[in-house]
Simulated scan of single mutants.
Amino acid sequence: MFQTIRVNNHRLDVVFSGKLDSASMKVALDEMIQQAHGITDGAMLVKVGEFELPTLGAMGVEMSRLPQLFRFIRQFDRVAVVAGQTWVRKMSTVEGALIPGLNLQAFALDETAEAEAWLAR
């Protein structure tokens, strides 16, 4: 399951769980990019349910769209990742550290209120 919700002109929420294959990755990326159109200095809340590593095909789709994804992520100053799985939080933190200018913080599922507060700062 994958859902993107544009909360307002500065906030995007992304909710997903399960496994992404190449077709669902394409739809997910298209939806995120479309919903984020026009956002600047934005904040994004990413809620991750039970998540499996994407298929190789999904990773290929993601890699083929890196220029678009870099433009997409530059629209955001802050990203809060809320996930129950420790490895997802750790991977998110590592990815966030690799993207200049992005402030990413990972939170456990029971810290959703803290994630919301951090994004609102």
Rank of each mutant, 00 (worst) to 15 (best):
residue 1 M to D: 04
residue 2 F to P: 09
residue 2 F to N: 09
residue 3 Q to R: 11
residue 4 T to M: 07
residue 4 T to E: 08
residue 4 T to Q: 07
residue 5 I to H: 12
residue 5 I to M: 10
residue 12 L to K: 04
residue 13 D to Y: 09
residue 17 S to A: 12
residue 19 K to Q: 15
residue 19 K to H: 15
residue 20 L to V: 10
residue 20 L to T: 09
residue 21 D to E: 09
residue 22 S to V: 10
residue 23 A to N: 12
residue 24 S to Y: 03
residue 24 S to N: 12
residue 24 S to D: 11
residue 24 S to G: 12
residue 27 V to S: 03
residue 28 A to V: 08
residue 29 L to R: 03
residue 29 L to E: 06
residue 30 D to T: 10
residue 30 D to K: 03
residue 32 M to I: 07
residue 32 M to W: 06
residue 34 Q to N: 07
residue 34 Q to S: 07
residue 34 Q to L: 07
residue 35 Q to S: 12
residue 35 Q to Y: 03
residue 37 H to Q: 14
residue 37 H to W: 05
residue 38 G to Q: 05
residue 38 G to L: 03
residue 39 I to P: 11
residue 40 T to G: 09
residue 40 T to I: 08
residue 41 D to H: 14
residue 41 D to N: 10
residue 42 G to Q: 03
residue 42 G to E: 00
residue 42 G to N: 01
residue 42 G to I: 00
residue 42 G to F: 01
residue 42 G to C: 06
residue 43 A to S: 13
residue 46 V to W: 14
residue 47 K to E: 14
residue 47 K to Y: 15
residue 49 G to Q: 12
residue 49 G to T: 13
residue 51 F to V: 02
residue 51 F to N: 01
residue 53 L to M: 15
residue 54 P to I: 04
residue 54 P to V: 03
residue 55 T to R: 02
residue 55 T to A: 02
residue 59 M to K: 08
residue 60 G to T: 08
residue 60 G to L: 09
residue 62 E to C: 11
residue 62 E to D: 11
residue 63 M to L: 12
residue 64 S to R: 11
residue 65 R to F: 01
residue 65 R to E: 05
residue 66 L to T: 07
residue 67 P to A: 06
residue 67 P to K: 08
residue 68 Q to K: 10
residue 68 Q to M: 08
residue 69 L to F: 11
residue 69 L to Q: 10
residue 69 L to Y: 04
residue 71 R to P: 05
residue 71 R to Y: 10
residue 72 F to S: 05
residue 73 I to T: 14
residue 74 R to L: 07
residue 75 Q to F: 06
residue 75 Q to S: 10
residue 77 D to S: 15
residue 78 R to P: 09
residue 79 V to E: 07
residue 80 A to E: 00
residue 80 A to T: 04
residue 80 A to G: 11
residue 80 A to V: 07
residue 81 V to A: 07
residue 81 V to C: 07
residue 82 V to H: 00
residue 82 V to Y: 01
residue 83 A to S: 09
residue 85 Q to S: 02
residue 85 Q to H: 01
residue 86 T to G: 05
residue 87 W to I: 08
residue 90 K to I: 14
residue 90 K to M: 11
residue 92 S to F: 03
residue 92 S to D: 00
residue 93 T to L: 05
residue 94 V to S: 00
residue 94 V to N: 01
residue 94 V to I: 13
residue 94 V to T: 05
residue 97 A to D: 06
residue 98 L to M: 14
residue 98 L to H: 05
residue 99 I to L: 06
residue 99 I to G: 04
residue 100 P to H: 01
residue 100 P to N: 00
residue 101 G to C: 03
residue 101 G to R: 02
residue 101 G to S: 05
residue 101 G to L: 01
residue 103 N to P: 02
residue 103 N to E: 09
residue 103 N to V: 03
residue 103 N to S: 11
residue 103 N to Q: 13
residue 104 L to A: 01
residue 107 F to C: 04
residue 107 F to V: 04
residue 108 A to E: 04
residue 109 L to C: 15
residue 109 L to E: 11
residue 110 D to A: 13
residue 110 D to Y: 09
residue 111 E to W: 09
residue 112 T to C: 15
residue 112 T to G: 13
residue 113 A to E: 06
residue 114 E to H: 08
residue 115 A to Y: 01
residue 115 A to N: 02
residue 115 A to S: 04
residue 116 E to M: 13
residue 116 E to G: 13
residue 116 E to C: 13
residue 117 A to F: 10
residue 117 A to T: 08
residue 118 W to E: 06
residue 118 W to L: 13
residue 119 L to Y: 02
residue 120 A to M: 15
residue 120 A to T: 08
